[in-house]
Amino acid sequence: MNPLLFGILALLMIASALGVVLLHSPVRSALSLVMTLFLLAVTFLFLDAYLVAALQVVVYAGAIMVLFLFVIMLLNLQADPQGMAKVGVRFAAVLLASLFLLAAVRFFVAPAALGSGTGMGGTPPAGFGSVEAVAERLFTHSLFAFEVTSVLLLVAIIGAVVLAKRKLV
């Protein structure tokens, strides 16, 4: 991917992320988030992560965000006038977060140990990022995690059903 394309994608992503956080209406926030997810999916494509990109769209944007929107509609939320926390907290949060960002960039991102972009420039092996490649790793190296995750999903389903059930009088 060439840097220009990356720059455009990056800017759009940041803009929509800010939209999630700063927009007052929850519906608009949700739609901003969907936008961000789509842009991320595009980025994944450019990084040769084809399955992941597809899953991003189908699962994340297609299922999870839909669920969010369902709940927002269900609760019939309007834009609440007190959307943000008090000024003091706002200030503290932004300050801390910026400090965190600066620190992260300075100490974890910049160091030369990350190496040059040689890896990025090089060609990945054949079938990199394809379904077969992911499946191969998934069912051999991460088999246990896979099984545990399926149990986790079961638990989540049961939990969600129990929690949201209306108590029978």
Partner: peptide, 15 residues
């Protein structure tokens, strides 16, 4: 917020 503060403190220490 206070958790973040704590995390920052640890980061600062190591930095």
């Amino acid at each position: 917020v206070s958790m973040l503060l704590g995390a920052m403190a640890i980061l600062a220490y190591y930095a």
